[in-house]
Structure formats: C-alpha cells, structure tokens
C-alpha cells in the first residue's frame, strides 16, 4: 500500500503541515463540502479539496483521513496550518486542478503498491 510520503513524491506536492507521512493511503475522497466528507469518506482516505479553512482539520481528524491535498494553487489559512500541526494532520498543496490530481491518484492507487 502507498503511504502519504510516496504520494507526496510521486505527485510533487508541497507539505504545508506535517503529520505522520508514513500513514497508509487506502483510498481517496474528493469533495469541497464538509458534510459530504463527514458522511461518505472512509478511514485512511486521502481527501482532495479546495477548501482552506480550519474546519477541514476537524473533519480530517474525526474521519481518520490520512492526509489532505488542497488543489488549484490555494494556500491553507494560517489558522488551518496551526491546527493541523497541533492535530498532526498532513496538509499538502498542489498547483494542479482537482481533476488532474484525481486522475493521477487514481492511476497510482489502482496500480497498487509499486514501492
């Protein structure tokens, strides 16, 4: 199984807040609606979103999200980074769109472990 660290390397992501980078990534959930993530994401999912506000961290903790990727060149709010560091939630950023990140992640996760 791929870890957050593998994905950071393969997709060239920026680490804005570092949690446990050795966490496994079981799947991926894409949504910008926190209630939707609360309802439908699964444990050890990687969460792709363009939301940057601090509530993202709370949802990630509750749902056991392995890491959050913020897309489209957005920067997490300072408060979000602070909270994420406190809660040991990994926050990553990418200049690419959600669609492109999703497409590449899908290929990575479907091809399974190629560590």
């Amino acid at each position: 199984m791929l870890t957050i660290h593998d994905i950071v390397e393969k997709l060239g992501l920026d680490v804005k807040a570092q949690g446990d980078l050795q966490k496994d990534v079981a799947g991926c959930y894409i949504s910008d609606l926190l209630s939707d993530v609360m309802a439908n994401s699964k444990d050890h999912d990687l969460w792709v979103t363009l939301q940057t506000h601090p509530n993202v961290v709370a949802v990630a903790v509750i749902k056991g999200i392995s890491g959050v990727i913020i897309t489209n060149n957005r920067t997490p709010e300072a408060e979000t980074v602070k909270k994420a560091e406190m809660e040991k939630v990994t926050i990553l950023t990418s200049p690419h769109s959600t669609f492109d990140i999703a497409g590449r992640l899908y290929q990575l996760l479907m091809s399974g472990s190629d560590k």
Binding site: S97, F99, G103, Y106
Partner: peptide, 20 residues
C-alpha cells in the same frame, strides 16, 4: 460512482481539466 472514480476514469480516457 464517487467523484474520485469518475475523475479517474475520465482522466484515463484522455479528458482534460478545463482549469489547465
């Protein structure tokens, strides 16, 4: 299907992101 699967499949078929 969830968003992730939909995007993954469409991306694999060569569709582009309209952002880029």
């Amino acid at each position: 299907l969830p968003m992730f699967t939909v995007c993954g499949m469409l991306y694999a078929k060569g569709l582009k992101s309209c952002v880029n």
